[in-house]
């Protein structure tokens, strides 16, 4: 209250800065990539970059929903793994069943999201614990179901979702199917947050759930829906991953943390109340560009994790520090 009267100077700026941060970081990193490997500027390689980044961007969009409402979803990597393993087991080499199985995968994912949401909203378990539990359970379930090792193979029509590249497309030359899925998912995620009242509700729930509740906001439903969206994104990403790299028991390992890091790099605020779809999209592209860059520089794969951890801490630290200076 003491700082109140003189503070009318900064209308709306934080959100815009956040958006620009993600975009700027991405452009800088991609420029660095292009400096080392000039052919990354060709449309074909850029499309390929987007194709490989697609699962992370989609996961980040889903994760963003949960982050906006003030939570975390640590179970999405496990859901992606489950999707890959379940697809190979259920399809069992019969391409006829692919579409039915994909439907079943979404049902499974939505079920996990519902459980996460119900546990957080009604049992009041902190989301970091609830989804950590879900992550362990889903991972265990997937491993047990597959017998602990990757088994079977995915049919061509399933793998095409991640692998197929359309050729001779006007303007861009080549267009991977995964990029179309990516654009579609981002569009839906954007619509959910900006085309309906849901986005604003989510922001308020993340900012102050008590005030939201007292004004009549369906807080529990808002939270649950966020976890469902997050799980749906994990299923979608899992399907693309299955297409890229085939069946593997650690297909989705660590993706949940990458998705969280992506949102934070893009300017979404951990514990809720601030962020947009663009934070997730550009944050994820930045993170993926960074991985690509490290690869080109010849750094060992393992260092990726360390750098990702350092970035996560730095990004969160910067947000907290900014917040404290304003307070």
């Amino acid at each position: 209250m003491t700082t109140a009267p003189q503070a009318s100077a900064l209308p709306r700026r934080p959100a815009r800065i956040a958006l620009n941060a993600g975009l700027v970081i991405f452009v800088v990193l991609y420029a660095a990539i292009a400096f080392i490997q000039p052919n990354y500027l060709e449309p074909g390689l850029f499309m390929n970059f987007l194709r490989r980044a697609a699962p992370l961007v989609i996961l980040a969009c889903g994760q963003l929903y949960v982050i906006l409402t003030g939570g975390f979803d640590l179970s999405m990597g496990a859901v992606a793994t489950l999707v890959v393993l379940a697809a190979s087991i259920l399809i069992n080499g019969d391409p006829e069943t692919t579409w039915a199985v994909i439907g079943a995968l979404y049902v499974m994912g939505i079920a996990v999201g519902l459980v996460n949401g119900l546990v957080v909203a009604f049992l009041k378990v902190p989301s970091i614990i609830a989804t950590l539990g879900a992550m362990l359970s889903v991972n265990g379930l997937a491993l047990a179901w597959s017998g602990g090792a990757a088994r079977g193979d995915l049919p061509e029509n399933f793998r095409n979702l991640g692998r197929l590249v359309l050729r001779d497309v006007p303007f861009v030359g080549t267009l991977p199917l995964a990029v179309i899925v990516l654009l579609g998912f981002v569009a839906i995620a954007w619509w959910g947050l900006n085309g309906t009242v849901y986005g604003k509700r989510a922001l308020v729930v993340g900012d102050n759930p008590r005030a939201a509740e007292l004004a009549g906001t369906p807080v529990a439903a808002t939270r649950i829906l966020a976890f469902v969206v997050s799980a749906v994104s994990a299923v979608t990403a899992g399907i693309l991953l299955g297409g890229f790299s085939g069946v593997s028991v650690n297909a989705g390992e660590g993706l949940e943390l990458q998705a969280i890091a992506a949102c934070v790099i893009g300017g979404a605020q951990l514990l809720g109340g601030r962020g947009s779809v663009w934070s997730a999209v550009f944050g994820a592209l930045s993170l993926f560009a960074l991985f690509t860059l490290l690869n080109l520089l010849g750094l060992p794969q393992a260092l990726r994790d360390s750098i990702q951890g350092a970035i996560l801490i730095a990004a969160v630290g910067a947000t907290v520090w900014r917040g404290r200076r304003r307070a």
Partner: peptide, 23 residues
């Protein structure tokens, strides 16, 4: 603590109840 979402805009706070009840 209970009335406002402090990091949201004046407009968003004023719209809180309408948005909460809307479909």
């Amino acid at each position: 603590g209970e009335g406002l979402a402090l990091r949201q805009s004046v407009r968003d706070n004023a719209l809180l109840a309408l948005r909460a009840i809307a479909g």
